[in-house]
């Protein structure tokens, strides 16, 4: 899949808002990219976009220290996980993430630390700085497993908007 240029934080938010309504229980979004690449920014935008239709505007704190923040979306849970501090993939199950992969919407930052615990079906998003000193980010999206048919429409819209 080609790389998408997101020219500023707002562009990242807009794409996140387009992706958010499609997410269902059992959908895992893996967020890859170094410090400052915009993983949390993207995740916060997805979460805010799912809370807003419920009339909820809540704090979306960093999960770096707590490892997981969960949001009850009414009938479905959204998990925001950050594996930055994780040592051993064995702890994935203990955190309850393995189960959440089946039952919830899960956003995972530093997802490469999932190792062998990575789910067979996931949407992998890799963010990196765009060349130059601007605010832009390059995003590579790689779906894994089936059920991501809506993606083409969302990305087509993103290009149209960009």
């Amino acid at each position: 899949m080609p790389e998408l240029l997101l020219e500023d934080p707002d562009a990242t938010s807009r794409l996140a808002r387009r992706i958010a309504p499609h997410l269902r229980a059992g959908d895992v979004l893996e967020l890859h990219g170094g410090l400052g690449a915009g993983k949390s920014h993207f995740a916060r935008a997805v979460i805010a976009a799912r809370l807003a239709p419920l009339g909820r505007h809540e704090d979306i704190p960093s999960p770096t220290y707590t490892l997981v923040q969960t949001y009850d979306l009414g009938g479905i849970e959204l998990w925001h996980a950050d594996l930055y501090r994780l040592g051993d993939p064995d702890e994935i199950a203990e955190l309850g993430l393995s189960e959440a992969f089946e039952t919830a919407i899960v956003l995972v930052e530093w997802a490469s630390r999932l190792g062998p615990e990575a789910p067979s079906r996931a949407l992998s998003l890799s963010l990196d700085f765009a060349p130059g000193d601007a605010e832009g980010r390059l995003l590579r999206i790689e779906p894994r497993g089936g059920g991501w048919d809506w993606l083409a429409g969302v990305l087509g819209g993103a290009k149209g908007a960009a």
């Binding site: 934080p9 707002d10 505007h57 704090d59 979306i60 704190p61 605010e135």
Partner: peptide, 14 residues
């Protein structure tokens, strides 16, 4: 209180 975190208000520019 109104939420602050991730409320869509723009953060610092890099």
């Amino acid at each position: 209180a109104a939420p602050l975190l991730g409320s869509g208000r723009k953060g610092a520019k890099a």
